[in-house]
Amino acid sequence: MAYKHTYSLTAKIWIYPVMAFFVLLSVLPFLYMISLSLQSDAEMFSGQVVVIPEELQFTNYVTIWEKAPFARFILNSFFVAGTIAALHVLFDPLIGYVFAKMEFPGKRFMFVALLSTLMIPFFVRLIPLYIMTAKFGLLNTYTGLIMPFAMSAFGIFLMRQFILPIPDDLIAAARLDGASEPRIFFDIVLPQLGPAIATVALLTFVFQFNEFIWPLVVVSSENMRPITTGLTLFNQEFFTQWNLTAVGGMLLFLPCFLLYLIAQRHFVKSAMLSGMK
């Protein structure tokens, strides 16, 4: 029979309230966002903290589409985040495979250099990245939104970790079977990276779907905005329409939540195998 760890009564008495406190602390802002999204303008500007609205204003979920081109914003968000996630799924395993299974001069140096980019905060890279994007004439374009994020050091690292344990003999067997190097990658290596690919795709999509700074810097026209910067339309000179902003927040949350539900199994497996939990 498998060993099952049990906590003593004293441990239970203090562990559960502490855990409940931290859960509440993280969930509370989200619950307040739901409440805010259902409040009327009057409740919002009343100066009081309204937890449960007197009358649930579901009309906010309709008004938002009328006040701003939200369909376009959503489409932009999906297109940009989806394309970036797809590029990650293509490039990250490919580069991870090269680092895991191929030998070439400078491999170690290049890998360390790649990993070191993880240590540099994005804001440090923001200005040179902006200048480069501008020089390439990619400001206010989808390419400008997508290109700088087409692959990531984290994704490459995760893929390399997943590919390393694949036996070299498996690759040798495919080579003997007459497979070319691209064939070996697509036929033999890639199908074994399901959990890692799901994780990279999910994390990338969610991260890019929520990305705010880069679109804010690169995009100038309204029809190029994703939801995140689109929400700033409710930020007016003298007041902010928090209820509509909260509705936008819900629209940002839902796709990511659904995606997580679908890919959760792979995500957990991947986290366990890569030791990143």
Binding site: L170, A173, L176, G178, A179
Partner: peptide
């Protein structure tokens, strides 16, 4: 010649079967 063009086939210690 490339391993696939030598007319040899190999059986490995750890079987090296494609798991998928």
């Amino acid at each position: 010649r490339h391993p696939g063009e030598r007319g040899v086939a190999m059986v490995f210690q750890n079987y090296a079967l494609y798991p998928h």
